[in-house]
Measured scan of single mutants.
Amino acid sequence: SEEKKKAKERLERLGASSELARELLDRANGNAEKAERLLRKLL
């Protein structure tokens, strides 16, 4: 979806690899905010 694509791009801008961004979104069930929080914990 367009929303998921935007979320993935945002995670990548924050420093996630394409693969990591995809994994985070999967774990967050597509929830962009939750995926971002997970990423911030990792960085």
Rank of each mutant, 00 (worst) to 15 (best):
S1T: 12
S1N: 12
S1C: 09
E2F: 11
E3L: 11
E3G: 10
E3R: 10
E3D: 12
E3T: 09
K4P: 08
K4G: 13
K4S: 14
K4C: 10
K4D: 14
K5I: 13
K5F: 10
A7E: 05
A7V: 08
K8F: 15
K8H: 14
E9P: 03
E9M: 07
E9W: 05
E9H: 07
R10G: 05
L11T: 00
E12H: 06
E12S: 03
E12M: 15
R13E: 10
R13Q: 12
L14K: 03
L14W: 05
L14G: 02
G15S: 02
G15W: 04
A16Q: 02
A16C: 00
A16L: 06
S17F: 04
S17A: 04
S17R: 02
S18F: 06
S18E: 13
E19T: 08
E19A: 13
E19P: 04
E19L: 08
A21P: 00
A21V: 06
R22I: 15
L24Y: 03
L24A: 02
L24M: 05
L25C: 03
L25Y: 04
L25D: 00
L25H: 01
L25S: 03
D26N: 10
D26L: 14
R27Q: 12
R27L: 14
R27A: 12
R27M: 13
A28D: 00
A28Q: 02
A28F: 15
N29Y: 07
G30V: 02
G30K: 02
G30A: 02
G30R: 02
N31F: 04
N31W: 06
A32S: 08
K34S: 08
K34Y: 15
K34C: 10
A35T: 00
A35K: 00
A35I: 04
A35Y: 03
E36P: 00
E36W: 06
R37E: 15
R37H: 10
R37Q: 14
R37N: 09
R37L: 14
L38S: 04
R40K: 12
R40W: 14
K41I: 13
K41M: 13
L42A: 06
L42M: 11
L42W: 11
L43P: 02
L43K: 06
L43R: 06
